[in-house]
Design a protein around this nucleic acid. Structure first.
Lengths: 121, 121
DNA sequence: CTAATATATGAGCGCATGCTCATATATTAG
DNA sequence: CTAATATATGAGCATGCGCTCATATATTAG
């Protein structure tokens, strides 16, 4: 079933078509900025590799650093960012801090993106 | 059903568990970089809003610029980038160039991301 | 023809970002 | 206790990125 909607494109109002039930609008700046920030978390190779490592199991900083062959500092900085974005949690266990994934929605985006690039060029 | 896998974490080999059938490995740098580049396209508010506009219907540059209340130049630069990434196609029609979405997989990521931020905080 | 419109694109500027390096703190080993 | 280990974090630097501005080209109007 197809319905006709009106979309505000600046000064003009334009008619368009879409499947019933789906959203149709130009995102406001605030929403677009929030969505862009969500994707920004996944827009760096180091963070991607950290996420891929934590997908296997929870790991502490030096394990991640060794797996990625990067400095502890670089990994720790990225983990701080992932913590702020609530993508991972860090749990202190003695001298170690064990990091684990904590946002399955963003992990779903990661998986879907990975599936996409894996069966293309 | 759960199976046990071995994952190379640098010098060490570690056992872990996962659902049968899913992938489990630390992404190599090349794949991580490609995946990060995919998400990078969606990591800017202007590009997000252009995609949201084109989701309604194909539009030419000045229509997009008016809808987003941005300069033609800024929009044109972003459209050039979206073209290079094969996310949109531009079709010349007289003086106008009509842009349309051309990558449903990345649009799916956009939709999933939008759905995610819409039913959270 | 000239003028207006529509788009593309290079240069440059300011700001964000990801790293390294230095340093701080906490915990455990000996 | 001291030394070693594990992590966090600020400063600084190099690079990337998104915008504006200037300019070029193409098409259509008159």
């Amino acid at each position: 079933m197809e319905t006709v909607h009106k979309v505000d494109l600046g000064d003009e109002v334009v008619a368009t078509r879409q499947q019933a039930g789906s959203r149709l609008e130009i995102l406001d700046e605030a929403t677009a900025t929030r969505l862009a920030a969500t994707f920004s978390v996944l827009s760096d190779p180091t963070r991607i590799r950290i996420i891929s490592a934590l997908a296997a199991r929870a790991l502490c900083v030096h394990e991640i650093a060794r797996a990625l062959r990067m400095t502890h500092s670089a990994v720790s900085h990225q983990l701080a960012l992932l913590r702020e974005m609530h993508l991972v949690t860090g749990t202190k266990k003695g001298r170690h801090v064990t990091y684990a994934l904590d946002d399955e929605h963003i992990y779903d985006l990661y998986s879907q993106g990975l599936a996409h690039i894996r069966h293309q060029s």
